[in-house]
């Protein structure tokens, strides 16, 4: 037997084995044909059309479309913890609308550990605020004690008001009460009432 006999005899390999092993069937023989692949082309066209129709709705939806030039500005991260959500998450919904003569004017969460409730006086000015954290204030990921001191000092200087601070712990939470006091005003009664109300 000659090796060429063997090579030629392989021309008689069963068609099923040839098709099974054909390395060029997809690469060479099957050139893409619109006519042959009309179903695939149609499906792709429908998909494109659907995207074209629904994309503008998606962009305008409150949950969708960040990063587009035409989209509304993305809210700051803090907004995720704002107002009603902050109340629900922080337990501030348990706080009264009025507290120690002040009226709840704002509440928000500056970070995932901290909730802030702001109370105002009858003129709408901030009277005091209650800050609650689920970690001690020295570990807060938001405003540290030092930061708070700097902020209060700056605010006091600007408004000629003194901000008094009281810290306490209750039922696994850490509280801070900041009261704006002007002149010789005695804040002791207010502080006591606030703490009692929160407890």
């Amino acid at each position: 037997m000659k090796k060429m006999d063997l090579m030629k005899a392989m021309n008689g390999i069963d068609e099923q084995f040839l098709l099974e092993a054909d390395p060029y069937e997809k690469a060479v023989r099957r050139s893409f044909s619109l006519r042959r692949n009309w179903k695939l082309v149609s499906a792709f066209a429908v998909l494109l059309l659907a995207v074209g129709i629904f994309y503008p709705f998606y962009k305008s939806a409150p949950f969708g479309g960040s990063g587009s030039d035409n989209a509304a500005p993305a809210p700051a991260p803090i907004a995720a913890y704002d107002t009603e959500l902050a109340k629900d998450m922080s337990g501030f919904d348990l706080l009264p609308e009025t507290l120690a003569g002040g009226k709840l004017s704002d509440s928000y969460m500056p970070d995932e550990h901290t909730a802030v409730a702001v109370y105002g006086d009858e003129n709408g000015n901030e009277a005091f605020r209650v800050i609650r954290q689920d970690i001690p204030f020295t570990q807060t990921s938001g405003e540290t004690k030092d930061d708070a001191s700097e902020r209060k000092e700056a605010e006091s200087t600007a408004s000629s008001e003194e901000i008094q601070t009281v810290y306490w712990e209750d039922n696994g939470f850490y509280y801070c009460l900041e009261i704006r006091v002007s002149g010789e005003e005695d804040s002791g009664e207010l502080i006591g009432e606030a703490i009692r109300s929160i407890r």
């Binding site: 037997m1 063997l6 005899a9 021309n11 008689g12």
Partner: peptide
């Protein structure tokens, strides 16, 4: 060599 038999 009978190529037909060899193919088989």
């Amino acid at each position: 060599v009978d190529l037909t038999l060899l193919k088989d």
